Structure formats: C-alpha cells, structure tokens
Computed example of a mutant assay.
Amino acid sequence: MKTASGAQLDFGRLALLVLMLGVGWYFWDSPVFWPLKVLVVMMHESGHALATLLVGGSVDRIHLAANESGSCLSSLPPGFFAKVTVYSGGYLGSAVAGAALLLATFRFQLRRWVLGAACVWLTVMGLLYAGDLFTLAFCLGTALVMGLGAKYLPDGMVDVLNLFIAAFTALYAVFDLRDDLWNSAVRSHSDAALLAELTYVPSIVWAVLWTLLAVGLLAVAAYVSMHAKPKGLQMPSVSARARRA
C-alpha cells in the first residue's frame, strides 16, 4: 500500500505498534504500568500549562497524585477564548504528545533524542511548577531514569522503550477521554464540566468533540508514521532485522 508520495506501508512497524497497543490494553491494570499512567497525567497537565502560557497567563503550580489524578493551577487573563483554550489544553495536549511520540519514534526514528527531550521536559516542569513533594520527586526521578536510559541503554532497548511509551501514551489519551465521555460521575468534575459552565454547551458535547479531535490526530499520526520513508537516524524495520537473523 502506497501514499500519494510513494511511501509504502511498513507492515513490520504496523505489527509492532499493534503489539504494543495490545500489551498496554491487556495489562492496563498492572501496577507495573503505574509510572507510565502518572507520566501521561503529567502530559495532560503540561497541556494546560502550555495553553496557559500561550494565552498570556501564568502557571502557579502543578500537582500530581498517586491515584493518577492531577491539577494545574494557573492565573488566566480575562476573556472567553483564553479559558476555552486552557480548559481544552489538557485532553488535547496528551493527544498531541501521543501523536508527536508516534512520529518521533516511527517516522523520524530519533531514538535517544526522545528520551533526552522527555528528561529535559520533566526536569523543567518539576523545578518550575511542582506544587508538592510527590510531584517534584516523580518529575525528577522519572527524568533521571529517562536520561540514564538515553545515555546507557543499548539501541534495541531504546527502540522498544520509545515504541511502548508512544503506544501507551496514545492509548491512555483515548482512555482518558473515554472515561469523561461515558462516566458521568467523572465527567461532572472534569475539564468538560468547566467548559459546560462557561459556554452552556453540555459537557458530553465537549467530550465528544475532544474525542473526535484526539482520535483523528492520533490516527493521522499513526498513518503517516506507518507509511513514512526513513530519514535521518534510522531504526531498522522488523522485517530487515528478521532477514539479517
């Protein structure tokens, strides 16, 4: 299967992505994946923080909790647009992060740069905005793990780790929206509820809109990644490794 540009579907990449998604889905409730879930919550809150800065506001502090909840406390400039942007930044931010990870991992094959960028991001967010000891410890501890992995892990292990983080982030972004869409108890305390109060548009409408945007973004990122021609730093495809073996 080819795109208009002539890039072919890499079935090895596709199979690996499906495998990673399946592992994440099947072992979703395993405590082993707890750090990854909190990591994606940090992506969600970072989306709020980035949106706040983009509209000219200031971020006061970010809180993460062991129960996989989080909050971003900000000072916003007056205006309807600013509030809509910031309230929407969390859900869409985690989806954008998942799409960016898919592209960086599969298309651009950045390997250690992905872990290095995550290390810098977590360090900056922790030092600037952590509002409690748990948030600071999680950000700096995870940043240390990412940094050590970027420096010392073999290339194959870096590849597997990047692939799984990308797949898990995309999966969690969709699950996060699913909970707000179908669980009315959660939705009543979510960003969708804040937007419903602001706009008088029902929270479930916002949840549907965010879900469509997030799923569409992730689908496009996955499609482009699976069809892209390798550029720059390259990770051999699964089929190429099999032939050499």
Rank of each mutant, 00 (worst) to 15 (best):
G90R: 06
Q109G: 01
L76G: 06
Y87C: 05
P78D: 08
T85K: 10
P77W: 11
T85L: 15
G90K: 01
F108W: 14
A104D: 03
S88W: 05
T85N: 12
V84S: 02
A99T: 07
A82W: 02
Y87N: 12
T105K: 06
T105V: 09
A66R: 15
S74C: 15
Y87A: 12
L103I: 13
G89E: 04
G90C: 04
Y87V: 13
V86E: 05
A65V: 00
P77H: 11
S75C: 07
L73D: 13
E68I: 10
S75H: 12
A97S: 13
N67D: 15
V96N: 03
A100I: 02
S94T: 15
L92N: 03
Y91H: 11
S88R: 03
G90I: 08
V96I: 14
A97E: 03
V96Y: 07
R107M: 12
C72T: 09
F81L: 13
S69A: 13
P78F: 05
S69Q: 14
A82K: 06
E68T: 11
R111T: 09
L103W: 14
R111F: 00
F81A: 11
L92E: 04
F108C: 03
S94C: 14
L110H: 11
A66C: 13
L92A: 14
A104E: 03
A99Y: 12
S69M: 11
C72F: 07
A104M: 12
G98L: 04
L76Q: 02
L92W: 11
F106G: 03
L101G: 12
S94K: 10
A66M: 11
P78G: 06
A104F: 11
L110E: 02
L73M: 13
P77C: 02
G89S: 02
C72H: 10
S88G: 14
T85A: 15
A100Q: 08
A65L: 11
